[in-house]
Every structure is written in C-alpha cells, then in structure tokens.
Amino acid sequence: MNGRYVAVGDSFTEGVGDANLMYPNGVRGWADRMARQLGKADSSWEYANFAIRSKRLDEIVDEQFDAALALNPTLISFYAGGNDILAVRADMRSIMDRYESALDRLVSSGADVMLFTTFDVKISTALEPLRRRIVYYNDAVRTLAARYRCLLIDHTQYREFEDRRMWAFDRIHMSKVGHKHLAAYVLGELGVPHTLKLPELGPFESPDWRETLRTEGRWLASEVVPLMRRRMNGVREGDTLPPKWPDPIRPADGMKRLARARSGDAMEVHERAAHVA
C-alpha cells in the first residue's frame, strides 16, 4: 500500500497534547506518527497535513479543502466538528448536514476517506447536554461512514482511553501516549505494520485528596481560566498558525530533518525581507 496521505481538521489531527519542539507548530501527534510509519512500510509514501487547532467545521472546509484536494491525495483523514460541539449553542442537525456536504466533496475526489468518532468521556450530570451532542455526532459519523463507504476509526470504542494518562493536562487533547495508541489503531485499520512502542501503563493509582486538590487548582489556573479569557477576547491559538505540512513531504526522508530544513528556509525568507526593508 502506498500513495499520498493528506490530513485535514483541527487540533485533534494537528497533534495538540503531544508536544515536540522538533516538529512544526511544536507538536507531533498521531497523524505525524502514522505518516512516519507509512514511510517505513514504503518509502514512496507522501504526506501533507493542513489541520490547525481551534478551527470549526466550516473553517476547515473553507481554508483547507481546496489546497488539500489540489494535491490529489489517495488517502484523506477528516476530523471536524469538535469545536462546533463545544460551542455554547450548537445545532447538531445543521452541523452534521454540513459535515455530510464536506464528506461528499472529499469522497468525490476519488481518494479513500478516513473518519473518526470523538471519544465519549464519562462526565458529570451537569455536562450531560454536551454528552448528548457527542452521542449524536458519533451516531451520525457512523451512519455516514457506512453510507459513503469510508474507513471509520471508532475512537469511542477504544475504552483504554478512559485512563486519564491517555489525555493531556488540559483534559481535552490526547497525551503523547494517547496519540501513539491512536496512531497504532489507525495503522491497524489500514493493515500497515508498525514499530510504535506502546508503553504498558499498568494500574492507575489515584492520588490522595490533597494532591487531587492541588491538581484541580493548577488545571483551573493554567487551562480553564486562560481558555475562558481567550474566548471572551475572541482570541484563538489557531488564528496565527500555519499548516504543519502544507507541501507534500516524504516521511521516509526523516521528518525532524525536513522540519529543520523548512524552519531554515522560513528564517532565510524573513531575513531577506528584513534586509530589503
């Protein structure tokens, strides 16, 4: 199996939660890990990733689809709608109607399309309306995957993600371990062997109540309050970030080396512009 893999989406596919300064935008993520394994299986594989954090469904379609489809991919991964679900108001029927229109466009390109459910976490009864949105979204994605004959990565069925170590400190994005596990699942669904080293987590030992209180305090101060402040100010992290891999690369050539080369090219352009000014 070989070809050109192109990813579109939001922070889920950009790789947020899997911090790595050696990669564009400071994150690695399951898609980069998967692409590297595709390159190991067949060095001719090419890869591009347009996913950017904070983006909603319509933004992903408007800002990423044209460039992604212009690359004539043979495989496309599409995850969108998570940020729409988290909005204060969300018309799920409208969201999924627009999701289907986007999906139809991807499928019509002739590429194989890979879809994802969102993980259905156990949450308090106070957030039950959010969980109902997640259930609606997942049921709709399953239906559309069958209707359009897409490959479905049913994330919510992988119950080991109930372990909090699969998640970053923000409790929204997967951790490095979580991204690794998801990459392994995707490769398994594609039938591609991999060399990913998946750590054995062992039983989770809950901290005592004092440590729990300290952790909750840090989480509120470092994650919840800044998030609410950004939303009130209309500021989003993704608004100033470029796509990680907008031009196709060959992962077999070494993704860290390719990232360094790209960073060097960008710096040279910046220095030339400064000199001309």
Rank of each mutant, 00 (worst) to 15 (best):
D91R: 07
A102W: 02
E59F: 01
A68D: 09
D58W: 09
I76C: 02
D58R: 11
D66V: 03
R93D: 15
F65H: 03
N83D: 08
R93Q: 15
S101F: 00
Y79K: 07
S77M: 07
P73Q: 11
D62Y: 09
A80S: 10
F78Y: 12
L75A: 12
I76M: 09
M92E: 06
A90S: 08
F65C: 13
E59K: 12
D84G: 01
E100P: 02
R93W: 09
A87C: 13
N72R: 13
S101W: 00
L75D: 11
A68N: 03
S77W: 07
F65D: 09
M96G: 05
E63Y: 09
D62F: 14
L71H: 05
S94N: 09
R93L: 10
S77H: 08
D97A: 14
R98I: 00
M92K: 06
N83P: 04
M92T: 05
L75W: 10
R93P: 02
A68L: 10
D97F: 02
E59N: 10
A70T: 04
Y99T: 01
A102I: 09
S94E: 05
S77D: 14
D104C: 01
R105G: 03
I95G: 07
L86K: 15
L75N: 08
F78E: 08
A80V: 07
T74D: 09
A87R: 14
N72K: 14
D66R: 10
L69H: 08
I85C: 14
A90C: 15
E63W: 10
L69P: 00
G82F: 06
D104F: 00
A87S: 12
D104V: 05
A80F: 12
R105Y: 02
I76D: 01
F78K: 02
T74I: 04
G81N: 11
I85W: 11
M96C: 05
R98A: 09
D66K: 11
L103G: 01
I95N: 13
Y99N: 01
D58H: 12
D62M: 12
I85A: 10
Y99V: 00
R89S: 06
I60E: 10
A68T: 03
L75G: 02
R105W: 06
D91H: 15
D62H: 11
A80H: 06
D84V: 03
M96V: 01
V88R: 15
I95Q: 03
L75H: 12
E100V: 00
L69G: 02
G82M: 13
A67K: 14
D84T: 02
A87M: 12
I95A: 04
A87K: 14
D97I: 05
L86Q: 15
A102V: 01
G81Q: 05
R105A: 00
D104A: 09
L103D: 00
D66A: 15
I76W: 08
A102C: 02
M96I: 02
D104Q: 13
E100A: 11
I95E: 03
A67W: 07
G82P: 07
L86W: 13
E63H: 08
Y99W: 06
Q64Y: 05
Y99C: 05
E63R: 15
A67M: 13
A68Q: 07
Y79F: 03
Y99Q: 04
T74N: 04
P73N: 11
N72H: 08
A70F: 00
S77Q: 10
